[in-house]
Design a protein around this nucleic acid. Structure first.
Length: 467
RNA sequence: GGUCCGUUCGUCUAUCGGUUAGGACAUCAGGUUUUCAACCUGAGAAGAGGGGUUCGACUCCCCUACGGACUGCCA
């Protein structure tokens, strides 16, 4: 119960891509730290040398960066601290809080199989717990925690409440492997302590670990951090999120073209609430975020809602930032970059595009009229509107358009009158105009397209279609 | 099997013993419109089941059911 400045961390293991659940946990930790003006650290849990890869570490860094979750200081490698971990393990040995166990993996394996077969508890009780040092063989050993076997270990969790575990149901976990490397259970505690972590916000798959880790804190006489075990994220069907659901990796979401701000908003709201607030900025999230608002039940991913929120964020973005993020999106998907003309036209078109796009692919699709150079190739539906009559009307338009001023205020009455002059409503004229200008039947407003395209380009496209 | 956690509209959630159980997404029906999107209006839609405690339970307790996590010299 100290008043130390808040320090949180995200501690992903680099054994694959960055899971969306990890991203949300990172987000919560980041939000909490930023809310309190504290520190948010990134630690790569790479003590599993078999499975850790530098590519996975790079993917984590990319994912964090994309989501805008800036961490303080350098990302640290847990493995780099292995000597410190080993020292703590030996310190525990010296304090009588741990012991050397000479049981081989095979031995334990045999025990577990037998226990499982006989439906007995697989809890392993090492015969070396109380063995006199004189009886120790000259062989490889692991260091096991000498866990209390009676009483309870109580976790006061900021999300889950008070959770009690019976000590006689917990075994003496290994803290140092026979090759001298630390296990996760030891390394997290040592690192969190050394890094001054005050609040451990992580998936509730770690809830039981908190009990075991508490024992290490106690053995070393260290302060226990505030625990906050948050529920896991499920797929839309309520099942554990798997490849089958389409997207489990953060980078897949980026590649699908969701804006980072929308992603943050959605992920923050998933399992956390601030009254009825649904759409909010990252600044608001930082201002509002607290542990009390975190729910206790797992939440399902809802892509429709994600899209809706993303659409709102795109609409709320300022044009320059939106263009910048769009180009970044293009880059990660290996799409050809925008040329100068496209960038210029698009930046002028954004105002009439961003209200109607939910994702970047969506935006690009709707922006096509401004991205593609002549000639405009109409799709089938658009081609149908360009019948001889329509084409002849378009033809009469261009000379008159040539002389008018190019503003919405002049264009609007002009086109309305032109339609009327041919005995049709503007709605009838809009179809062929769309086809000529965009080659589509679904486009932004005709006026907006004309404004974005400019007089010369508009007339050229109209002439193309009329002939 | 054991331990632990969870369970409000289809989905995300509000409610912190007293509400016609609210909002959002989605859905459906209207409206507006220059197509699409958007927007506006409206509708349907929920406390897993059973016991308690209480004047009164979605809210507190117990049991059941269902879901999940953990049960590694993985993290």
């Amino acid at each position: 119960m100290s008043h130390r400045p808040v320090v949180t961390r995200i501690a992903p293991s680099p054994t694959g891509y960055m899971h969306i659940g990890t991203a949300r946990t990172a987000l919560f930790n980041w939000l909490f730290a930023r809310h309190h003006g504290g520190t948010f650290l990134l630690r790569i849990e790479d003590t599993d040398r078999e499975r850790s890869t530098s590519q996975a570490t790079a993917a984590i860094l990319r994912g964090m960066t994309w989501l805008g979750l800036d961490w303080d200081g350098e990302a640290v490698s847990q493995f780099d601290q292995k000597d410190r971990h080993a020292a703590v393990a030996h310190e525990m040995l010296a304090r009588g809080a741990a012991y050397k166990c000479f049981a081989s993996q095979d031995e334990i394996e045999v025990f577990r199989e037998a226990a499982t077969a006989e439906k007995r508890s697989t809890l392993y009780r090492s015969p070396w717990r109380d063995a006199a040092p004189a009886t120790h063989p000259d062989a490889r050993y692991v260091i096991r925690m000498k866990a209390p076997q009676t009483g309870d270990t109580v976790i006061d969790d900021a999300v889950q409440g008070r959770v009690t575990f019976r000590n006689d149901l917990l075994d003496d976990m290994i803290v140092l492997r026979s090759d001298g490397t630390p296990t996760y259970m030891l390394a997290v505690v040592v690192d969190d302590h050394d890094m001054g972590v005050t609040h451990v916000i992580r998936g509730d798959d770690h809830l039981q670990n908190a009990a075991r880790q508490t024992m290490v804190y106690d053995a070393m006489g260290w302060d226990i951090p505030v625990w906050a075990h948050i529920p896991l994220i499920f797929g839309p069907d309520g099942k554990k999120l798997s490849k089958r659901h389409g997207a489990t990796g953060v980078e897949e979401y980026q590649a699908m073209g969701y804006p980072a701000a929308g992603m943050r908003n959605y992920l923050t709201r998933l399992g956390w609430s601030h009254g009825d607030d649904e759409f909010f900025t990252t600044d608001q999230a930082k201002e509002w975020f607290n542990l009390e608002g975190i729910g206790r039940a797992p939440a399902r991913l809802d892509f429709k809602k994600l899209e809706n929120l993303c659409g709102q964020h795109i609409a709320a973005s300022d044009d320059a930032a939106l263009l910048h993020e769009l180009e970044a999106y293009l880059a990660v998907t290996d799409a050809p970059p925008l040329n100068d003309v496209q960038r210029d036209t698009l930046s002028r078109a954004l105002y009439c595009l961003k209200d109607r796009a939910k994702t970047f692919p969506d935006l690009i699709e709707k922006a096509e009229f401004s991205l593609n150079a002549r000639p405009v190739i109409p799709d089938d539906a658009a081609a149908k509107t360009l019948d001889p009559v329509s084409r002849s009307i378009l033809k009469t338009l261009t000379p008159q358009l040539q002389t008018g001023t190019w503003t919405k205020e002049t264009l609007e009455p002009f086109l309305t009158d032109a339609a009327a002059a041919h005995g049709i409503g503007f709605g009838k004229l809009a179809g062929p105009l769309r086809a000529a200008l965009a080659g589509r039947t679904a486009t932004p407003s005709v006026y907006d397209m004309m404004l974005v395209l400019g007089k010369d380009e508009t007339i050229a496209r109209l002439n193309d279609a009329a002939t």
